[in-house]
């Protein structure tokens, strides 16, 4: 705390008119180099009529609107239809087209978990992620800790996520280093016979499709 600002802010603060906002406003934190560059490039693209302000806004809105529900819909469909599952694994773009879902411009490879193989996704170099199917990545996915440890000690990382796999199961880590993106197709949990695709999709979480956990069947409550 600076020397000209050494008073108490406790609940017994004697001056009720002197207070600070509970957290800093956006403008109170200096912009980073990359934030400045992002704003500058956006302004230039608009000034030069390459894209419009509304197109830029709409694209940000679209990116923000993507949730893991899109990936979950694909998984639920694959659980319900073996033919679709095969096509999803062979070519996720074509499979997405079948149900009117654009999986995006970057190829997404769907990695199927089986009783003998468990897949885990990481991007050790940065934070590549299947955003068109899962939305914005969680902060931990981008952390140096996850990126370093998911590749070098995946079983410990899985265990910290509550996922303990027997040593007989092979763990296959996929490092998204270049032009592919990855999504895990988890195994369908037991006790889900007769569930609709919408009900099944409700069991499929983001973390299941990254591979740090596995879906659970319906609770027996």
């Amino acid at each position: 705390m600076s020397s000209d600002h050494h008073h108490d802010h406790g609940m017994y603060d004697s001056d009720p008119l002197h207070h600070h906002p509970p957290q800093p406003d956006l403008e109170d934190t200096p912009l980073t180099h990359h934030q400045i560059m992002q704003i500058a490039v956006g302004e230039l693209l608009i000034e030069k009529n390459i894209i419009s302000a509304d197109e830029l806004r709409a694209q940000i809105e679209f990116q923000d609107s993507i949730t893991p529900a899109r990936g979950a819909e694909l998984v639920a469909r694959a659980w319900s239809d073996d033919g679709f599952k095969g096509r999803l694994i062979a070519d996720s773009k074509a499979a997405g087209d079948e149900i009117g879902m654009d999986v995006g411009p970057v190829p997404i490879l769907v990695m199927e978990n089986t009783p003998t193989v468990h897949n885990l996704i990481v991007c050790t170099l940065c934070s590549c992620y299947p955003r068109f199917l899962l939305g914005i990545p969680p902060d931990w996915y981008k952390s140096r800790s996850y990126r370093r440890r998911a590749i070098s000690e995946p079983r410990k990382v899985l265990s910290e996520f509550g996922t303990d796999l027997n040593d007989s199961v092979e763990i296959k880590v996929h490092d998204s280093t270049a032009d592919m993106r990855y999504m895990v197709l988890p195994m369908r949990p037991a006790g889900t016979d007769g569930m609709s695709e919408a009900e099944l999709a409700g069991l499929v979480t983001r973390d299941c499709m990254i591979g740090v956990t596995v879906p659970e069947g319906p609770s027996k409550a």
């Binding site: 070098s152 079983r155 092979e170 763990i171 880590v173 998204s176 592919m180």
Partner: peptide, 17 residues
């Protein structure tokens, strides 16, 4: 890949190169 890999001997990693 790792001298001190603590997982199972059949564990694998796949990388785009």
């Amino acid at each position: 890949m790792w001298d001190d890999y603590s997982g199972a001997p059949h564990d694998k990693v796949e990388i785009e190169i």
